[in-house]
Simulated scan of single mutants.
Amino acid sequence: MDWTGRRVFVTGGAGFLGSNLCHALAQRGARVVALDGFLFGGGANPRNLDGADVEFVRGDIRDIDLRPLCEGASVIFNMAAQTSHMGGQADPLADIAVNAVAQVRLIQAAREAAPDAVVVHASTRQFYGRVETLPVAETQPVAPPDANGVSKFAGEQYWMLEHRVRNRPVVSLRLTNCYGPRLRIRDARQTFLGIWIRCVLQGQPFEVWGGEQLRDLTYVDDVTGAFLAAAENPACHGQIFNIGGSPPASLHALAELVVRLSGGAASYTTRTFPADRARIDIGSYHADDSAFRAASGWRPLVDLEEGIGRTLDWYRTRLEDYL
C-alpha cells in the first residue's frame, strides 16, 4: 500500500502504540488525524506526538462526534482502550464505556463517514485467561480472567460482527506484552516492564511478582509493522490474529536482562503476587502467531536484548517527561 496522501484516522493517537503508529504513518506520507482524550490512568502523553506531522484532536471517544474524524478515511487504526486490569476490576462500568460502548459509537460513525475504510483493531491476549497449552493459537477457548478482558472481548466482537454483517474489511490483532519508546512508565498500569524501567533509571530496586511465568514481548516497532501489514494485506481482512514477539522468557530471566543492560547497578526483589492480582493472573503465556505471519509476511525484527537496550537509552534523556 502506498500511504502517500491517504487519510488515516488513529484513535488513541497520543498513547503508547497509537503515537508510534502515527509517527510511522506520517513518515510514509499519510494524512493522519489522531484522537485522544488523555483519560486518567491511560497511556497518553503530550510529548508522544512531538515531531509527528499529524492533525491532533483532543476529545473523549465516549462522547465526541466521531463522524468528522472518520470522514474520508481509507484506514482506521482503532487503538483507543482502557487497558488497566485493576482499573477494570475497580470500575467495570467505566471500562465497558470505553472498550465496548464507545466501539459501537465508532462503528456507527464509520458507517456514515467512512463506509469503505479498512479497520485494524487493537485487541489483547488477555481474553484467553489461564491457558493449558502453549504456545497459544487463536483456536484456544476464550475465558477472560477479569472485567477488562470481558469488555475488550465485547469490543472486538462488535467489530468482527461489522465484518460479518456489513462486509467491512476488519482485522483484530490480539497483542501480547508490548514495550519500547513512549510506553507509560510512571506505574504498572500498562505493563510490568514500564515500572521496571522507571525504577532502573531512578536507581531504585524493582519487584518481580512470581518470576517463573513465561512471557513473550513485542518491541513497538514490530507492533507498528504488524498494524501496517494488517491494513495492507487483503488476506488478513475479516480475521483475528495473535501477535507474538521474541521467544518466551521467564520474568526472572527478563529481570536479569534488564539489570545487565542497565549496567549492573539495578537490582530487584522477588515476592509473591498480591492477593488481588493473584486472582486475575494468567500464568505463563506466549503466542502462536504463525497464522498472521503466513497471511501478512510479517515477522518481528527486534530481539529482546536489542529492544530493551533501545528502550532504556530512549528514556535516559526523556525520563522527566514520562513521570
Rank of each mutant, 00 (worst) to 15 (best):
S151H: 00
P141H: 03
T83D: 11
R105C: 05
R164A: 15
F292Y: 06
F127L: 15
T272H: 14
Y268S: 08
Q103Y: 11
Q239Y: 12
T269G: 13
A291C: 14
P144G: 07
V75G: 04
T176W: 09
L25A: 10
P247Q: 08
A249W: 14
A44D: 03
R318V: 06
G210L: 03
V136C: 06
Q126F: 15
L201V: 01
G18P: 03
R271E: 03
A235G: 08
H252W: 11
R31V: 15
V101K: 07
P145A: 13
L173N: 03
L183D: 09
W196T: 10
V57H: 06
L66V: 03
A147E: 08
C199T: 07
A24K: 05
L175E: 08
G263K: 08
A14P: 00
A80G: 04
D281S: 12
W159D: 04
M1W: 12
H252K: 14
H85Y: 15
A294G: 09
S250L: 13
D2A: 10
A235I: 03
G51R: 09
D91W: 07
F77W: 05
G18A: 11
A44Q: 00
L39H: 08
W298E: 06
E55V: 15
R62A: 01
P169T: 01
R105I: 04
G245Y: 01
R67T: 06
A81Y: 00
E306T: 13
M160W: 08
R105G: 04
I107N: 02
T270C: 04
L193I: 11
A231Y: 10
N233W: 10
A122R: 01
L193W: 07
L254A: 08
S267G: 03
T124N: 13
F292G: 13
S262H: 00
M86N: 08
G59E: 08
T133H: 14
S246V: 04
F16D: 03
P135Q: 11
A294H: 12
Y268I: 02
E138L: 14
I243F: 06
D60T: 00
V223N: 07
T124P: 06
S262P: 01
E207C: 14
L261K: 02
G87H: 10
A34E: 02
A147R: 06
N78W: 12
V302M: 06
W196E: 11
A275G: 02
S84F: 03
I280R: 05
A229E: 03
T311I: 01
L175T: 12
G88I: 13
E162P: 00
A226C: 06
R28G: 11
C178H: 05
G88A: 09
P115H: 00
I64T: 15
F127I: 15
A30P: 12
P68G: 13
G225W: 01
H237E: 10
S250E: 12
F192Q: 07
R215Y: 10
Q190R: 12
E207W: 00
